[in-house]
Write a protein that binds this DNA or RNA. Sequence first.
RNA 1: GGGCCGGUAGCUCAGCCUGGAAGAGCGCUCGGUUGGCAUCCGAGAGGUCCCGGGUUCAAAUCCCGGCCGGUCCA
Length: 912
Amino acid sequence: MSTEPEFQNKFLQEHGYKPYKCRVCGARFWSRIPRETCPDRPCSKYDFLMKDYPRVNYLTLEDARKKFIDYFVRNNHGYIDPYPVLARWRNDLYLTIASIVVFQPAVTEGIVDPPSNPLVIVQPCIRLEDIDNVGLTFGRHLTSFEMGGHHAFNKKDKHVYWVDETLNYAYEFFTREIGIDPDDLVFKESWWEGGGNAGPAYEVVVDGLEVATLVFMKYRIMDGKRELMPITVVDTGYGIERIAWFTQRLPTSYHTIYGVLIDRYKNILSIEEPPYDVLKKIAYSLSDKEIEGLDMLKHEVENLGMGEYYDQLVNAIRLYTLLDHMRTISLMLSDYIVPSNVGEGYLARLVIRRALKTLLQLGVEPSRLEEVFIKLFEEQADYWKDKYVYSKFAERADYISDVLRVETKRFLDVIDRGFRIVRKMLKKKKKLDLDTLIEIYDSHGIPPEIVASYASRLGVKLDVPPNFYSIVASRHGGSRALMKEKRIEVPGEIAEWARTFPETRLLFHEDPYMREFTARILGIKDNYVVLDQTAFYPRGGGQDYDRGVISIEGEEYSVEAVYKVGGTVVHKLDKNISSENEGKEVRAYIDWDRRYTLMKHHTATHIILSAARRVLGEHVWQAGAEKTIEKARLDITHYKQISVDEIRRIEEIANKIIQEHIDLKIHYLPKFEAEKKYGLKIYEGGAVIQPIIRIVEIPGYDAEACFGTHVANTSEVGAIKIINTEKIQDGVYRLEYIASTKLPPYINELESNIRKIAEALGLDPGNPVVSAQKKAVELSEQRKLISEYRNLVKKLIIKELENNLTPVCGTYAVVLEQNIKDKQLFREIIEMYALDKKYIVISYDEKLVEIATHPENCKTKGIDLTRVVSELRKHGAKGGGKRDHVTIRIENPEKHIAKIIELIKNQCRQTP
RNA sequence: GGGCCGGUAGCUCAGCCUGGAAGAGCGCUCGGUUGGCAUCCGAGAGGUCCCGGGUUCAAAUCCCGGCCGGUCCA
């Protein structure tokens, strides 16, 4: 990799830096003073913690962020506001894991111009892959952090800057702005890969701490191979927290980030940290080690002769974990992630459950869990008030607290259920082996630490291997990445063919009310046709395609389906069409009834979404939609059951929007301008990666990037009726509704159903409800009556049977004919006799004989009913059972009763 | 999206491995007991064993497919 020209830089050489090779890790790095090893861990410790930097001033997180932004703005970088941590603008990623993510893929692929070039942004990011290490590594690992990025996008016709300028910025920033001596600054050669891109990189390291990574993204990875990109990107990541930590040299980065919040958390949780000097010494001493698990930590701390602080240290680590997780949770929820068991919702739940687990480990009683959890969040919201993007914690506290409440309850339910399972397993197996432990975690969600502490309360000691989670992970093997799926809509070979045509002019966008048009045929393949322009809407954005007729020189073809391939619209006809027709002019007519219904359903969907947001909250996000001719449906994210009352209010607001007679507005805006003006809500229907975005706006209510056709005024929707709601997955609810002229047939059907029900049940059609209630009472009375009759009949039958007993082997054979269809009645009688040692009961209906007796009789009298069965098999019977209970399938059972009694008698003679 | 676990009375579940009579506790109804109660005693009602198919004389139980729920996961 050192062959990359980016490593043959001028800048470093001119500033007195020379290349060295690390004796330990072998990496090449640039330094002004000779060094044996690179100053990056694990080749080196956190030496900065113990050093003095006379020119370095103490910076808070706020200061560090501001300094970074100011410096680059001063150097002609346009400032960009941070984006949410939930990557709504991307279809291939859930969370914002780096500042460059904001500009991928639209800008990095050259589809859209950056909002500014070069630019600077400080982006809150979330990375969960090291979640296990949070706390344990004293602040090296965070689940959320601020990445300062300055980015330049170099195109063929516009070169902005590349390696030397980037190194210069880093050099100037760290030496002048932060005050680090150039001799302490080291640039380590590295390689970066991610998100389908790759390139050479420099890590900027100061005395053990990596403070920035400078990546020169020049490759795209296609099918496993690297190819040069048409656009090269300067992708830098400055660790804002780390820079602040560096200037403060506190024992951990948590102390820098969370300041007074640490003491407030300690109060709430009633725990103590070890003294600062002890903490600092431990953090420093362990900084070149990979601590995996508490056992290893204990060992290392004892080696340092600080074993007495171990317990405090463990509490402190849990404290840091909570501080970290609470900020991440707050970030996720304030960007309106709805916890779920799939997708980004799962990631939120994962962090929430880790935090809750940590609280339990700190000894918080389950009954206080919710209260403490909410309190910890409220403290974060208060601490971060008025600070950068974090001010939204407090602004959206209602939603966040409510979600935390719901999730805590769910977690406790899971734990509760888990404990029952643990009890059951312990009863069965007496001890829990690893497989069981994995099942309890993997299938039931109870972390082994909690199982262990519960088991020890039951007096069972069990060992959890320190690498438990990696064992689980390895068993999962090839489970695939958490990635949003990409939908593929078009039939294969047709798509390839369609791509050879220019973009179709979309008449339905120019005039959604156009019902007929003239166009020229550009291409024909079997029964597929491409025109130069069309008013036929292709399926997309959840709106179904149009149908209609194309007429070519008097011959009519019916349009069955319409698809969109890139910018080309493909019409599928009912029959093949001769390719001689290419270039000819056609007259086309769309099925207007169908289209108009689809338009109304589409606008209705935007209306419903807006109404749902008003009723349920701003977290409501479209998770899917479909508009067909029959009905429309919208899937929305929400974290608890939607009540009947809420549905009614959504319907009310939706119909109010219709009544308000609002003109829809269509705008075409550049991507970044649209995002700035309307927010990322425009991507409700999915991310749109285009330079110009079509926005459909219902002023005052909704604005979305949308390709579909809409009515001109909300009043055209007429009316909306929600006809069905269901939970389609955790955190996602489906609303189905109809609009306009679809309402009367729906109501007619309801009415006719009521009529039919009334008729079938003989209800008063004028007042079916009261009449049905009466019927229900009647029914339950009749049931009671039947039960009384059954008891009566039972007595009669028994009396009858008592008069017809046949002595067999010291018992009496009771022969019971099942002559009415009342299974329960006969079951009761059979049971009564079979549980009495004095009887053998032989019961039969038209094809089945059942014989039963008390099991005792088999032992004392040697009765074995299965032998009766094997005997009868010779006469064509089938059946089997246990010694005291058999069933026999035989034709005309009543003819065999005497024989059966005979066979039983024979048995007890054989064994007296 | 994939793996794993589950679906039996109103609720919580047992039974399933090894096919053969659908169960317990709580709750409910009725009766008795008690000054009172999350009292005690007794009786009773309540079931599409998730759905569909297969194997079998016989399926809650075994096999296949589906639906629903839970849970874990780059």
